[in-house]
Design a protein around this nucleic acid. Structure first.
Lengths: 341, 341
DNA sequence: CTGAAAGCGCTTACAG
DNA sequence: CTGAAAGCGCTTACAG
């Protein structure tokens, strides 16, 4: 026959009812060995593949996981998407991808579109936080990396990870540090900043005082470059000796600004990032950063989604410090102007 | 009611039959204005959204486009994926994404999985070419960027674009050039190489002779870095004065090798890429490269897929030369050893 | 343990 | 132009 074989064809070929075929397919219900074998033989003889659409209509459930990211061309989100796809595949699910372009409206309409398709669950890396839609839905939703609405969040422990970097810089002797923060309307931006600032404050109180400057930008290259350029355009004695950025992209932008201004990294200036995108290991000098465990994050997000009932509690996963060439000891001691926050 | 409203609910609310509701929904068939309005009122009153799964089962057609890329963390593929998603969205379709990890088996099983889901069409950026499965399928398949099986290909005119770069380098006075090619088992790798080599040969015959060296690698950073390091480890007079790479990633790797070896780009060495990923404009120095028109490629691929009947002919779209800081005039004339291919 | 049958929510010939 | 009805390919109570 030229059309695709159906359960009915399999049933006829095996001499059983379609119900039995379905039960064999599901693997759940008990079917006598002999019938089971007949059915399996028929399945391979006919090259039968279940029609997932029919199954979905009947059960209102699919094996598709919807993923919404702000921008797939952002290397960290691309990595996250790759990890989510792998994690989904491992558990027999496929991935439907949508980009919100940092637009709340697009985000919401993608959620609705996924719901229309009876996806098994939705993972969203939110564009920015805020009221967040309070859709109560039969379909589980998990926030990944950046909180979406009120849904449970799987993320790196941004504060803990950022504190690691603060310690690193303090230990290297830096006492005038600039922190390039991410957008304050993102939880990740806020947590990283608080983790970093909090730890520097603590270091400053227990040890030598630290002058800390704060600037806010987006998570992108341009923000990092622009802010670093401002910071570094001052006379050398007024410049920070270290710039810690809230993302690798910002840090790479900062690296470029330093390069343009002929400021030697790491001898005159340390620059650090956050994420450990693959590029971090390829820029010159290689970037000291915080590694976000993308695979683990993705796997946990998928696991929470698929649990019965779906996970409800946030999960924080520790990040780790990766020391490379862009951070080093402060060149020479300088007078410290005092502690500013 | 708490369950989702169906056509039946809409029909009752509007006092018509479900067939009429369906006809209004499809917009195709002629329905008298009065009934149409009643139906539309009922739709908004109930907040009705069509069940796409039921529709798919009935018509064995969905509005999902399947996209398979070798690796979503490759910046060029990420850009392509973003463009495909946008193009799909513009035409009312969603995107299902899968990564093949450059594995033919995975690629094939993703195709099958998409087919199982009755996708509207499949776009594949092939892992590498070869026999290619000859599935005849009701579902249209289009190759994007790299040919998949025997399916129509939408791609940059790799040869034309690479020739642009050959001209650029020749005009800058380079007479000893190394070309880092992509994998010869990819059409893109071969076409770019042939376009470049062919044009250099032509320049060499019509003008001054050019010594051209060829090396093959993958399209990734590591290949570029490794090959460039080999090339540049020779005594200065034996080194090429320009390295043209088959991808931006390779070129960025080459940039790093040059930096490590303290070879000034572009004063002592020109380095060029291919793709114009966003990173190309952020490395130091900014990369001279070929821009692949990702948006246009994506839009054409989606258009071919959605045509009735689906497009059957390959489409080549011209790339363009983007001159930035990594290429410059050859520093000083040197003896030319002759022309080698 | 197995079969017969209902039904998921649509679309679309078929009549009228 | 509109309605009644069949049917897409499954799954799952319901009987037995």
């Amino acid at each position: 026959m030229s059309r695709m074989p159906t359960v009915k064809d399999v049933a006829e070929h095996a001499g059983v009812s379609v119900g039995t075929v379905s039960r064999v397919l599901s693997g759940e219900a008990a079917v006598k060995t002999m019938l089971r074998e007949k059915v399996n033989d028929a399945i391979s003889a006919l090259g039968y593949r279940p029609n997932v659409t029919a199954r979905a209509l009947r059960t209102s459930r699919t094996d598709v996981i919807g993923l919404i990211v702000p921008d797939i061309t952002n290397p960290f989100f691309a990595q996250l998407a790759a990890s989510v796809e792998r994690a989904a595949l491992e558990r027999g699910h496929s991935l439907m991808l949508a980009s919100s372009h940092d637009d709340r409206g697009a985000e919401q309409s993608h959620v609705l579109a996924f719901l229309d398709r009876s996806v098994r669950g939705i993972i969203v890396v939110a564009s920015s936080d805020g009221p967040g839609l309070h859709l109560e839905t039969a379909v589980p939703v998990i926030s990944l990396d950046r909180r979406f609405g009120a849904f449970p969040l799987v993320s790196t422990n941004h504060a803990q990870a950022a504190a690691l970097m603060a310690d690193h810089l303090y230990e290297l002797g830096h006492r005038h540090i600039a922190y390039i923060a991410g957008p304050p309307d993102t939880e990740a931006g806020r947590m990283r900043k608080e983790g970093f600032v909090g730890r520097i404050d603590r270091c400053g109180k227990k040890g030598e005082p630290v002058e800390l400057e704060l600037a806010y930008g987006k998570f992108d290259y341009e923000s990092g470059e622009r802010i670093a350029r401002d910071l570094l355009s001052r006379p050398p004695q007024d410049r920070p000796t270290a710039i810690a950025a809230a993302s690798d992209q910002q840090a790479i932008g900062a690296l470029r600004a330093a390069r343009d201004l002929k400021i030697d990294v790491p001898r005159k200036l340390s620059v650090t990032g956050f994420d450990d995108i693959s590029l971090a290991n390829l820029v010159v000098p290689r970037l000291t950063t915080i590694r976000q465990p993308a695979d683990t994050l993705a796997r946990r997000a998928v696991a929470l989604l698929l649990e019965e009932p779906p996970g409800k509690a946030d999960e924080m996963i520790d990040g780790s410090l990766i020391v490379r060439g862009s951070s080093g000891p402060r060149a020479q001691p300088k007078a410290v102007a005092g502690h500013k926050n």
